[in-house]
Each structure stands twice: as C-alpha cells, then as structure tokens.
C-alpha cells in the first residue's frame, strides 16, 4: 500500500519538484494545495497519510493551516517545508504539532528519509 501524500505550497515549481520526488519513491500524491486556506479543505476531502506544508503562503500561513489541520485531526502527520533562517517559525510549527521539518534547498534523499520516518 503506497503512502498517500498531500503537498501544500504556493509555488508550482516546489509542488512539482516534491511531486516528482514522491512519485519516484512510489508514493501517491493525492492532493496539491496552493495556499493555507485550501489546505484544510483538501485535507478533509482526501484524508492523506502525510502532508508537506510550506510555511510562508498567501491567505493563511502554513503554521495556521497546520493548526487548523491538527485541530481537526490531532494525529495528522504534517511535515513543514521551510527556507533557511526561518528557525523561529519552525520552532513554532514544531510546538504546534508538526512531526518534522525539511529545509530548502533540500536533497531528494533527505526528503524521503524524513517522510518515511514520520510515516512509519
């Protein structure tokens, strides 16, 4: 049974990149959301095994979206995707229930290591 992943990122480039990585690894990308607001709706709809969440996004930030999702499903597996230097935001996300984080620019292996560990 392959892992069902949902990607939240406002940049199409990042979404595609992550999607390629996950597809190559044999995961199923079940949803892609462009902003924090759409994320919660998508999450409800597809009930993924794991979410990768960008932090800085329009409408609703990744941290707000994380809190929305955890609020509804405390067991949700959310991995934050952060740029270098966003330490305090990542800390906040971890405190809010993020399972782990990936720092951009990332390597394919690192992303998969984190995702596999969190999903196991």
């Amino acid at each position: 049974m392959s892992l069902r992943v949902m990607i939240v990122d406002d940049a199409l480039f990042m979404r595609n990149m992550l999607k390629d990585i996950f597809t190559r690894a044999g995961f199923e990308v079940v949803a892609e959301s462009e902003d924090g607001q759409a994320a919660l709706e998508d999450y409800r709809r597809v009930q993924p095994d794991l979410v990768t969440m960008d932090i800085v996004m329009p409408k609703r930030s990744g941290i707000e979206a994380l809190r929305d999702i955890i609020g509804e499903d405390p067991k949700a597996c959310v991995v934050m995707v952060s740029a270098l230097g966003q330490d305090s935001l990542v800390l906040e996300a971890v405190e809010s229930g993020a399972r782990d984080f990936i720092v951009k620019p990332f390597k394919e292996d690192n992303v998969l290591d984190v995702v596999r560990r969190v999903a196991s």
Partner: peptide
C-alpha cells in the same frame, strides 16, 4: 544540523 532547537524539541517529544 539545520534548526537544532526544533530538532531538539522533536527528539524530546
């Protein structure tokens, strides 16, 4: 290590 404080909190958890 990237963002060691966050890493520490995750380990603690």
């Amino acid at each position: 290590a990237a963002m060691p404080a966050a890493r520490g909190l995750l380990l603690l958890r």
